[in-house]
Computed example of a mutant assay.
Amino acid sequence: MIEYPLLKKNATIGVTAPSSGVEPELHDMFKQACTRMREKGYQVECGKTVWTQIKAKSASAEKRAAEFNKMIQDENIDMIIPPWGGELLMEILSKLDFTSIPAKWILGYSDTSVLLLSITLKTGIATAHGTNLVDLRGDYSDKTTAMWENVLSAEDGDSIIQYSSEKFQKEWDHENPSPHVFHLTEETVWKTVSDEDVLVKGRLLGGCIDVIRHLIGTPYGNVRDFQKNTISGEPILWYFENCDMPTTDLKRTLIQMKLAGWFDNCTGIMFGRSSANYSVEGYHVQDVYRELESELNVPIIYDVDCGHVPPQMTFVNGAYAKVKVDNGNGRVEQWLLS
């Protein structure tokens, strides 16, 4: 069964960097995010790893794991939000104490999704794929991103509805900072391979496909065991987002996932918008999606609000979800069901 944490009012947020920390020249930007959270009534406790970054990581694997273990077990810290993702979170998995992880929300995306998915698969504790802390530094928050609080403050058994965004950000414009952080200029359209409206249901699992693929074949990526023993054989509804893989690498990854049994008893797959998905010799991402739908015989939905092209919804790993695409609009209802 799935265990759901609960975000309390005036909660204390622990900020640790299990992947990348914040370079000195970006400290002020990150401090803005901490200030905004305090203005919203949260307490914020930052670990030492947040403020350092060398050789593609915030600190050694030992230091990162020790700080995470300490924060997750600290009774005075209610939830954990890393500053952002990075590259080498995989280094710390073998050093984490999965037997002592209590039910606290962990929120983030990108490389953080390695931590999120492995915790849900190993422990049955729900985790939240959504905004990074640094993206909450604006004076305001767009409606899609802001839903993280509604989702994480829902109680066991509740359902939460999120709708697709009206517009998304095509590219960053750091020379003209927005009070919402993002520059939402392009019309959002959720698409399906079939070009028809789609309704899919299942237990949500997923993350940044570039990195969670490396859980395959390890003790931290046993989807079959999770499906059999934690969700009693219920079908899985996958969501993925591609950070920087070309289409051929994406296809190889999806084949590996299929061969590893990740798509056994799967009801559908959602793909987030991506600035990657680089075509190779005329092989486009739409070709990948069409082939995947044909091979698995399940609906493929793409360009959803998830990942590195903001804004993004908050998807709860382990929650039961019903996803509807109707004339380019998306509706996601999640039930926090054990």
Rank of each mutant, 00 (worst) to 15 (best):
Q73I: 10
D156K: 09
W105A: 08
L121N: 07
A65M: 00
C46I: 07
T99Q: 04
S110V: 08
V151E: 01
Y163W: 07
T185R: 12
A59L: 01
D111A: 12
I125N: 00
V114A: 00
W105V: 10
I160N: 09
L133Q: 13
M71Y: 15
P83N: 04
E155D: 02
V181F: 14
S141Y: 03
T49L: 08
G138Y: 10
A146R: 07
I160M: 13
A154H: 07
V181T: 14
Y163E: 13
L115Y: 07
G124Q: 05
S153C: 07
S60W: 03
W148P: 03
L152Q: 05
N150A: 10
D111C: 05
E75Y: 01
M147C: 11
T99F: 00
L89W: 01
K170G: 15
E175R: 11
I106H: 05
E166L: 08
S153Y: 03
R137T: 05
Y109W: 06
A126F: 05
D139L: 14
D173M: 10
T144R: 01
G138K: 09
I72F: 12
A61S: 10
S153A: 09
L133M: 15
E67F: 03
Y109T: 14
T144Y: 00
L115V: 07
I80N: 13
E91R: 00
L184V: 03
F168Y: 15
F68N: 03
V50G: 11
I92W: 00
D142G: 05
D158K: 04
K170I: 15
M71N: 12
T49K: 08
D139V: 11
S141T: 13
P102T: 04
K55D: 14
W148Q: 04
P102Q: 02
T120E: 11
M90Q: 02
T145H: 02
E186T: 13
L117R: 02
A61P: 02
V181S: 03
D74C: 11
T120F: 06
H174L: 15
D111Q: 07
I125Y: 00
K143A: 14
S58M: 06
